[in-house]
Design a protein around this nucleic acid. Structure first.
Lengths: 130, 130
DNA sequence: CAACAAATCAGTAACTATTACTATTTACTA
DNA sequence: TAGTAAATAGTAATAGTTACTGATTTGTTG
């Protein structure tokens, strides 16, 4: 049986791991999840495939936390909340993103740029760390 | 003569370099600017003092670009624009930040978190790269 | 000003996330 | 099945950053 996306088995597993978690993992976390089930998996392969996903528009970077890049495969534009104590990254539902409708146009005109996308991140303490 | 902030000469020079540029520099850039005028300056000192400024609330991180952390000493909350081609970081005037007044309260209530600050970044192409 | 204590620093070594490289394996095609 | 391209493991290399140690500077107090 063949994947709908024609990914190799490992690429598919990496993508599935990424897309089915909401922790916005690092490359190493993905590797640690898969290594037991796939003993012949290399960390370099995880890095390379995460780069491939970014290139394909299937994943994006949420930022660098404690030196590690964190990834998200949920590609609808939504803000994040990062706890400054436990460094958990929480998705904020799209509806709560109240960036003005005209922001893109206004900034493009005033700042002389072409905006493709944006990222909104809130920082503070999550309920466990308050 | 003594600095208003009681900084050591090097700390003062690093802060002045950071606060008087709008390029949102990396540690290395700050070091390269100062090294000719201050031959006895160590890159480690720049890193350490940037960390001190963050701790003191005199600077913040704008993010990591091409593996390098970029800093900003303009502490009023304002969005940034990052050119995806030349990686220039441009300040967007505060007025254009149209995050809804109620966003903090709404997200805090719905997501059960305490928000301290936020960061808004737009990505695209600047006028030189369009 | 002198003497002491605390803070800061230079220089180097260590650390770690990430990337590059190469030989090997796997998948695809005809 | 043979041939070709893509993907991978394993390792080495890179680069940003941090840690450490002994020396220097700075601030303080008499």
């Amino acid at each position: 049986m063949q994947s709908k996306r024609n990914f190799s088995a490992k690429r598919e597993a990496i993508y599935e791991t990424l897309v089915s978690t909401d922790i916005h993992p690092s490359a190493e976390w993905v590797y640690e999840q898969l290594k037991p089930k796939m003993p012949g998996l290399s960390l370099g392969t995880v890095y390379r495939n995460l780069a491939v996903f970014k290139e394909m528009g299937l994943a994006r970077s949420v930022g660098v936390i404690n030196g590690q890049e964190r990834f998200d495969a949920k590609m609808t534009q939504h803000p994040h909340f990062i706890c400054q104590k436990c460094f958990r990254i929480i998705d904020i539902p799209k509806g709560y993103n109240v960036l003005d409708k005209n922001a893109y146009t206004m900034i493009e005109r005033e700042c002389d740029v072409e905006i493709e996308l944006h990222s909104i991140t809130f920082y503070g303490l999550c309920k466990k760390c308050c």
